[in-house]
């Protein structure tokens, strides 16, 4: 199924022991004129294949730094991130990122934006196949009609759909989303959450997503990772979300456990780790 040129295979017994994605004792320290600034301090997290994990925390707690290191944009000061036992050294299409601000190229159409990635990642595939991959993924997010529109002519929700389509078209092992719906209006946000959930179920893809929105995290995730405040942020608590799949928003809203979890998360964020708190 994987067409990506994977580097040297690790011994199989090692594979069976190690979870799919491992964040191993990860720290990030920036040197500043007034001494070292510790952003993240000893993050440990193991993500199973096909799991949906949300990371929440106050702004400035280093969530984005964490995701940048999983994506490979930044290197950890200590520890490492491993995907299928391979340490992550640099960005690559096996860990596609969906950014909050869309990051579509404004001079290319939706189709061309996706094609750029497909053509770069699968250069050996025949033209017909590449075209089909692009159109299939545009269809997946319901944007066949807008294929030849440029991002300037698309709404925020449509742009984010194109981004998701671009990411999925490359068959990533992990989909990394950095507050993908933060800039959208509430109705579009709910629509896209449901679409993302459906895509995740159909594709059995591993998702790591940053969000500010507790309800969003509880609706989507298998586990919610709550970060303590920075500097030297750590994982404060990991909440397992028990709702059965496939999930329906209305059902979850009726579930009393939803409010228990919600209160627990709110308590974590606004009482135990309220923004002015220091550890």
């Amino acid at each position: 199924m994987q067409v990506l040129n994977s580097p040297t295979q690790s011994p199989s017994e090692y594979l069976s022991q190690e979870p799919f994605l491992v964040i191993d004792n990860l720290s990030k320290v920036y040197p500043t004129p007034s001494g070292e600034y510790v952003v993240l301090d000893g993050i440990n997290l193991a993500v199973k294949e096909g799991e949906f994990v949300c990371v929440i925390g106050h702004s400035g707690c280093g969530k984005s730094t964490l995701l940048d290191m999983v994506a490979g944009f930044r290197q950890p000061t200590e520890g490492q991130v491993r995907l299928e036992t391979q340490p992550i050294q640099e960005p690559g299409p096996d860990r596609m990122v969906v950014f909050q601000n869309y990051s579509l190229l404004p001079w290319l159409t939706a189709y061309e934006n996706i094609y750029l990635g497909v053509n770069s990642v699968f250069p050996g595939k025949p033209e017909k196949v590449k075209k089909r991959i692009v159109m299939e993924h545009l269809a997946l997010v319901g944007l066949e009609e807008a294929a030849h529109k440029k991002p300037g002519a698309l709404s925020g929700g449509m742009k984010q759909r194109v981004c998701i389509a671009r990411a999925l078209a490359l068959r990533p092992k992990v989909l990394i989303l950095d507050e993908p719906f933060g800039a959208l209006d509430p109705i579009t946000r709910e629509e896209l959450q449901e679409e993302l959930l459906k895509i995740w179920q159909d594709h059995k893809i591993t998702v790591l997503m940053i969000t500010h929105d507790i309800d969003e995290a509880l609706f989507l995730a298998d586990r919610v990772v709550m970060m303590t405040n920075g500097p030297a942020a750590q994982i404060g608590e990991i909440m397992t979300v028990p709702f059965a799949r496939p999930r329906e928003r209305s059902r979850i809203m009726e579930d009393p456990r939803f409010y228990e979890l919600r209160n627990e998360a709110l308590d974590f964020l606004y009482h135990r780790y309220a923004h002015d708190d220091t550890e």
Partner: peptide
């Protein structure tokens, strides 16, 4: 953002 896209897509 554009440079990040280029890096991810290699």
């Amino acid at each position: 953002d554009y440079n990040n896209v280029a890096k991810v897509l290699r």
